Computed example of a mutant assay.
Amino acid sequence: MSSRNRLVVPDAKAALEIMKFEIAQELGIQLPQDGYYGHMTTREIGSIGGYITKRLVALGQQQLMNRF
């Protein structure tokens, strides 16, 4: 079964990866270098995802405000 999740802007993947590492560092969470997240807690992963979402929403709101 193939994934139905597709990036609207494929070049954004690298930027999201950078953001993930920045946020993890800010939260004091060590991300595994091998890319296997199985040893991390749901709380750690959820915190990173939540902060990514907050930051993306803030960036979107800022862009909208700059239009008007």
Rank of each mutant, 00 (worst) to 15 (best):
E44S: 07
L59G: 05
A15I: 02
N66Q: 14
F21A: 15
G38D: 11
M65R: 12
E17N: 15
G46I: 00
I23Q: 04
Q30K: 15
F68C: 06
R43H: 10
Q33A: 13
L7M: 14
M19L: 15
R4M: 13
A12D: 15
G46W: 01
V8P: 02
M19C: 08
P32I: 01
H39S: 11
L16K: 02
Q61A: 10
H39L: 07
Y37M: 08
K13M: 09
Q30L: 12
R55L: 03
L56W: 05
A12L: 11
A58G: 06
S47W: 03
N5V: 14
L16Q: 12
P10C: 00
L16E: 11
A12T: 03
R67N: 09
T41G: 11
L16A: 12
M40L: 13
R67W: 06
L27Y: 09
M65E: 11
A15S: 15
G35M: 02
A58L: 14
R67D: 10
V9T: 11
M1I: 04
R6W: 07
I23G: 05
A14C: 05
R55D: 00
G38S: 07
Q63W: 06
E22Y: 08
G28L: 02
R43A: 03
R43V: 04
Q25H: 13
V57N: 01
T53P: 00
R67H: 14
K20L: 02
Q25K: 14
T41V: 03
T41P: 08
V57I: 13
A24G: 08
T42G: 05
L31M: 09
